[in-house]
Write a protein that binds this DNA or RNA. Structure first.
Lengths: 140, 140
DNA sequence: GATGGTTTTGACAATCATTATCAATAACAC
DNA sequence: GTGTTATTGATAATGATTGTCAAAACCATC
C-alpha cells in the first residue's frame, strides 16, 4: 500500500498548522468548510489520524472525551498548558516530570512507562473577571 | 434537593469498591447485571457521575475516549500509575508535580490550573516477556 | 403502619463523536 | 494517455453518553 499525496491531506495539515491551540476533528472540518473547502468529514478524521500516528501532530482527549489535535513543531516528547476558555496552548518541557514519572514507575516495578501530563487553566486574558462587558470567545 | 439513599447507588458504590482497576460505566453495568442486579444503565451513569463529582470516585479518559472510574480511598487530589496490560492501578502522590504544574501555569499567566497526570506502563508481572507459556489476562 | 411530597429510577429516544462501507474518483508509474 | 490502486466522501453503522418522563421508591411525618 503506497501513500499518495492529495490536496485534502495537505489542506488538513495546513489547517492544523495555522490553528493556534488544539482543535477537534469536527471543528477542523467546519473551519475547512468555512474556508470554502469541500473536504469530507471522514477524510479529515483519516488525515488527522495519519498525522497523529506519523508524529506530525499530537492528540489528547478533552475532558468531554473528544479527541483534540494540534500540529507540533517539537518532534520530541512534550506537554501542554491549555487555556480551557480560549484554547490557547503553550508547549512546555517537563524535564522534572519526565524524571519523576520514570522514578515512580520504577519504584513500583513498572516498565515502559508513558505518561499523560497536561495542565488546563485560564490564560492571563481569560483570567480577567467575566463581569466585564465582554466575555472572551471560545476558540474553535 | 435532598439526596436519597437507594440500593442502586449502594450497588454501584460497592461494585466500584470491589473492582481492581479502572472500569467503564458500561462494564460496571454489565458486571452488575452478571451478578443478578437489574439496575439500569442510565442509573449506573448517574451514580458514577455523582460519585465522581463528590470525590468518592475518580475518573479519567481512556485513550479510546471512554470514561473510566475507580473508587478512591484517598479523598484528596492524587494520580495514578496504571498497568496497560492487566489494569493494576497504584494511587500515587505527586507533590513535586503539583508544585511544578502550579509553577508552570503561573509562569505563563495561567490561573485556576488543573492537571491531568497519569502514568501508564507495564507492571512487574506483566513486564516478564510475553514469550512465556502464559500471557497475563486483561482485566475487565 | 399509612400517607404524601419529592427524588430517583429505568426503558427508550436522542445526541454526538467516530468508524466502516463501497462505488466513484484521482494519483502515480509506465 | 492509460491502467492500477489508494483515496475520497456520502451515508450508514456503531458505541458511549445524556435527556425524557411516567412509574416507583424514599423518607419525614402523622
Amino acid at each position: 500500500m503506497m501513500k499518495r499525496n492529495t490536496w485534502q491531506r495537505e489542506a488538513v495539515r495546513e489547517a492544523l498548522d495555522t490553528t493556534e491551540g488544539f482543535i477537534s476533528a469536527q471543528a477542523l472540518h467546519s473551519a475547512l468548510h468555512a474556508s470554502g473547502s469541500p473536504i469530507g468529514l471522514a477524510t479529515v478524521y483519516r488525515a488527522l489520524g495519519d498525522l497523529a500516528s506519523s508524529g506530525e501532530a499530537d492528540s489528547l482527549q478533552s475532558p468531554d472525551g473528544e479527541a483534540l489535535y494540534r500540529a507540533c513543531s517539537t518532534a520530541g516528547h512534550h506537554h501542554h498548558l491549555i487555556c480551557r476558555n480560549c484554547g490557547l496552548t503553550v508547549e512546555i518541557e517537563a524535564t522534572e516530570v519526565e524524571a519523576w514519572a520514570k522514578g515512580i514507575a520504577a519504584e513500583h516495578g513498572f516498565t515502559e512507562a508513558a505518561h499523560v501530563v497536561d495542565v488546563f487553566g485560564l490564560c492571563a486574558d481569560c483570567t480577567r473577571p467575566a463581569a466585564t462587558t465582554e466575555s472572551p470567545d471560545r476558540a474553535g
